[in-house]
Design a protein around this nucleic acid. Structure first.
Length: 912
RNA sequence: GGGCGGAUAGCUCAGCUGGUUAGAGUACCGGUCUUACACACCGGUGGUCCAGGGUUCGAAUCCCUGUCCGCCCACCA
């Protein structure tokens, strides 16, 4: 394992900024020219240029370096071509890009397949809305012309979406881009439809579907949003046909009474038992319907009598099936009352018809009561129109057999959700699966490959368009006018994009894919169905890991929505702060897939971090002039060097484990803390000592190490902030290949250095202690102070060699170890484990205040000591707690007692 | 009606298989333009970890009960 990157031999990337000095084959060992970075970090200066460099350089295509590593593959959740990307896309594409870049650098053949979804109803609605502005409907144009218009909209939006993904920095392989309605995917859809039909997993039947009168199409169950609404509950008198009495039914929808086929009562309801088998006469239309018994009826609700309208209520539909009742549709496809209703409401919308019917019932004395009633009302998820249960001929997929396989695969551990909690959601849905209505009465989408013979009615479902009826030979075949639900192509996405049903090299190499990154709102719509399709048609799950992201919300925790106007546009974010800032911020905030509250300002987290990286680099580059850079692997190491390498190694390990667990917050925190707190705040500060001195060799050595650690830090951070790291990388001395294509840092046990960690902690404790003292007594930062360090037996040697650095960091022009017998008069002490640090500032401060402060901190320590002692004298603890814990407690106690003792002694001396 | 999740500093949240003196960012207070960064640096204030019970030597962490919030699913006319 190499310690640092080898200086690359050839310039693969020659940016337009850094000019390597002519004729310098290996700048590492030569005098370095001053390299200037623009003073301000401005992502606009380079993000577009770098993206083009990556793309044109073929860096997004999978590379097989022959190491036999497993490919890492993601298929993008295809954005709809209805519009532009929103923050949710910003989030999931940023996270996908982090995974992709990480594994690419790790050497796996890495592929990210981009693409877009035709989004059936949604896109059709966009086009219809445009037509409406011109006063036109889709039928004015006709199917063909309408589709032409829709393709135009698709092209328009597709271009925008692609551009946006590039802006975000998504490193997907554009040479493999797909669209759900392109030729290959359409073939996959057809193959699947026919295969399902052949396997008896597909059927056509009259069924009560969710109907959107505005879109004019059936909707799947999940495409209906339920909302609580206050409506009415009416009780209506249904007289018995024989005039011997009446039944009172309760209904929320009086206008559907003309479609009633029965009145049901509970079979054991003593009030009505004797009426079962008789008939009642429907008011206003005079039709006789039977009184039937069905256990579904709740005796407690309303009057205990339920009017049965099989064509307009899902439950009634079921009951109707059980009792073989007639289905009478009282509504047309556009939501108006049909010819099956009395003339006074024909052609009216349901709402008006309801009012009119109630008036009529009241006028004729059939209305018993009316009260308000709160219930769930379904709305179309695309256009929010109230959805009607509607009787029609539709195609369905039999889901039960598919769901069983999907459940089995999960139980076997073939798929894993991150975070795990979503597995419940997945399981619950699959265990309660219903058949999937896949036909849609719109034009934009995959046309159903089914033909009916006009003369004999034979149904043909085929791979090739039939020309002749296979039963009667008639050439008059009528194709089903409907198209498929948009998800019917989406559920094939992981293999259709790789070429299926063809047996392409990509398919065999990259299927199954590795990870899926998506939001929890489409676990049912999409994730579960992809798993079912993958198992059914490929015999294997489509991906192994499913990372479910949270939802990006506004600062108040509300969903971002157009109507609230509280959304932020990822492109605005990129424009203001840069793609790196957005990506880093989102990852940083992605805790366990929890929702992410953010606004424009939140992005400063990433933006400030990028700025920090920029400036740290600028500082280092400023100090390179004339330096002879050596080999960081072999050069002598200072304490700070050993410490930073140890810290770097820890960060590398944390990122690796966080990456395996899809903990984006953890990995980004790790790189953030390493670079900012360790590298900038301490390491670079320490390096200033070496850099500003007179020792040329030490200057060279310091610069060598600074650059070497920076280089590796850039590689470490690249997946999270790809643009700025690439830009900076290209400016470092030495010609080099693009960062995107280099290797990712690996954990290196030879860098583990507990001694350096401990020694550096002592150093930083000392520095912090003195700084706190200075700050509390407002000693001017520029004021140099005298310091004498007295060490205890434990402290011996730990600080040796760090004196000059410590002196610089605490601003002391007279810093030394305390000589035997040397006076400490005029000093105040900072007591840390191993050392008592005497700071000679007594004449500069209020001694009483200092004493009070000292006493306060001592009291705190004493209290802790008391607690620890109590714990350690507890029989139960000592006998039951594990040994290492006890040892740890003892050590902590000893250390505290030592400092407390020295503090107390010091305090006494000070007071005396 | 069923299921899931959340409640930790003023705010937004980490705290993973129980062992810290409970952390970060931000806000706040004080000080610094210290030859990279004021998008910065240095220091500081701030917490009955929702309530109550239990398990344990030890609970923010595990279990139970309750309260409050959020989400998903569900056909009560």
């Amino acid at each position: 394992m190499t310690l640092f990157v080898e200086p690359p031999s050839s310039a693969e990337y020659d940016g337009d900024h850094r000019a390597p000095a002519a004729g310098e084959p290996h700048q590492r060992t030569k005098n370095v020219k001053a390299i200037e970075l623009p003073k301000a970090y401005d992502p606009k200066d380079f993000e577009d240029r770098i993206y083009a460099m990556w793309k044109d350089g073929g860096h997004f295509e999978p590379k097989d370096n022959g190491e036999g590593k497993d490919p890492f593959v993601i298929v993008i959740p295809p954005p709809n071509v209805t519009g532009v990307l929103h923050m949710g896309h910003g989030l999931n594409n940023s996270l996908q890009d982090i995974l992709i870049r990480y594994w690419r650098m790790k050497g796996r053949p890495t592929l990210w397949v981009p693409g877009t979804d035709h989004a059936g109803i949604a896109t059709q609605n966009v086009v219809e809305r445009r037509l409406k502005e011109k006063g036109l409907g889709r039928h004015d144009l006709g199917r063909e012309k309408f589709l032409e218009e829709t393709w135009k909209v698709k092209e328009e939006h597709h271009g925008i979406i692609t551009k946006q993904l590039e802006k975000i920095g998504a490193s997907c392989d554009w040479s493999r881009e797909r669209f759900t309605m392109d030729e290959g995917l359409s073939e996959a859809v057809r193959e699947v439809f026919v295969t399902l039909y052949e396997r008896d997993l597909l059927y056509k039947g009259e069924y009560l579907v969710n109907w959107c009168p505005s879109c004019g199409t059936a909707l799947a169950d999940d495409e209906v949003d339920h909302e609580e609404k206050t409506g009415g509950l009416w009780e209506i008198r249904y007289p018995l046909s024989d005039g011997s009495g009446e039944l009172v039914v309760a209904t929320t929808r009086p206008e559907t009474m003309f479609g009633d086929s029965a009145v049901a009562v509970h079979p054991e309801d003593d009030r009505y038992k004797h009426l079962i088998g008789k008939t009642v006469r429907l008011p206003l239309c005079g039709r006789d319907v039977p009184v039937i018994a069905d256990a579904y009826v709740d005796r407690e609700f309303g009057t205990g009598c339920l009017k049965i309208t099989p064509a307009h209520d899902p439950n009634d539909f079921e009951i109707g099936n059980r009792h073989k009742l007639e289905r009478i549709s009282v509504m047309n496809g556009d939501g108006t009352m049909s010819a099956a209703t009395p003339e006074f409401i024909q052609g009216m919308k349901a709402k008006d018809a309801r009012k009119r019917t109630v008036e009529e019932l009241e006028a004729q004395g059939f209305l018993v009561s009316h009260k308000e009633h709160v219930h769930q009302v379904g709305h179309c998820y695309r256009c929010s129109t109230v959805v009607e249960p509607y009787l029609s001929d539709q195609w369905f997929v039999r889901m039960q057999p598919l769901a069983e396989k999907a459940l089995a695969a999960w139980r076997k551990g073939d798929i894993t959700f991150y975070p795990k909690k979503w597995e419940n959601t997945y399981r619950h849905w699959l265990e309660n699966i219903r058949d999937w209505c896949i036909s849609r009465q719109i034009w934009w989408g995959h046309r159903i490959p089914a033909w009916t013979c006009a003369s004999c009615g034979e149904l043909h479902v085929e791979r090739q368009d039939p020309t002749q009826c296979k039963k009667c030979g008639s050439e008059e075949l009528r194709r089903d006018p409907d198209v498929l639900d948009t998800w019917f192509s989406s559920w094939l996405w992981p293999f259709s994009t790789l070429g299926w049903p063809e047996k392409t090299p990509d398919l065999s190499k990259f299927y199954p894919t590795t990870s899926l990154v998506t939001g929890y709102d489409i676990i049912f719509f999409w994730v579960a169905r992809m798993i079912m399709a993958g198992l059914e048609f490929m015999g294997e799950v489509p991906f192994k890991d499913i990372y479910i992201t949270g939802l990006v919300r506004d600062k108040k925790g509300r969903k971002m929505s157009k109507s609230l106007g509280n959304g932020i546009d990822p492109l605005d974010v990129v424009d203001t702060y840069g793609a790196d800032a957005m990506k880093f911020t989102l990852a940083y905030l992605s805790a366990q897939g929890e929702d992410i509250p953010m606004d424009m300002d939140t992005t400063k987290i990433g933006s400030k971090f990028a700025n920090k990286i920029w400036n740290a680099t600028r500082f280092i580059l400023m100090n390179l002039e004339g330096r002879q850079l050596g080999d960081a692997k072999t050069c002598e190491k200072s304490l700070a060097d050993r410490w930073i390498l140890h810290r770097l190694n820890e960060a590398v390990k944390t990122v690796a484990s966080a990456m395996d667990a899809y903990r984006f917050d953890e990995m980004s925190h790790a790189v953030y803390e390493f670079f900012w707190n360790d590298y900038c705040d301490w390491y670079v500060e320490c390096a200033k000592g070496g850099l500003y001195g007179d020792d040329e060799a030490e200057k060279d050595r310091t610069a060598t190490m600074l650059i070497a650690v920076l280089e590796e830090a850039l590689r470490l951070m690249h997946p999270f902030l790809p643009f700025i790291t690439e830009e900076i990388w290209s400016k470092l001395p030495g010609t080099r290949e693009a960062l995107i294509g280099t290797s990712y840092p690996e954990a290196d046990s030879s860098r583990e250095d507990a001694a350096a960690e401990a020694a550096f902690k002592t150093l930083s404790d000392l520095v912090r202690g003195v700084r706190t003292l200075r700050s509390e007594f407002t000693i001017a930062p520029a004021k140099q102070v005298k310091v004498r360090v007295e060490c205890t037996s434990e402290g011996k040697g730990v600080m040796d060699g760090s004196e000059s650095i410590a002196a610089m960091l605490v601003r002391s022009d007279d810093f030394a170890f305390l000589e035997e017998g040397e006076s400490t008069d005029g000093s105040l002490a900072v007591v840390i484990p191993g050392y008592t640090v005497h700071v000679f500032i007594k004449d500069l401060i209020d001694v009483d205040a200092a004493l009070a402060r000292f006493r306060k901190s001592l009291d705190k320590t004493l209290k802790l000591i008391e607690g620890k002692k109590k714990k350690l004298s507890n029989e139960n603890f000592v006998s039951r707690a594990p040994e290492d814990i006890i040892a740890k407690e003892k050590a902590a106690l000893a250390e505290m007692e030592d400092t407390a003792q020295r503090s107390a002694a010091y305090l006494t001396a000070l007071e005396g």
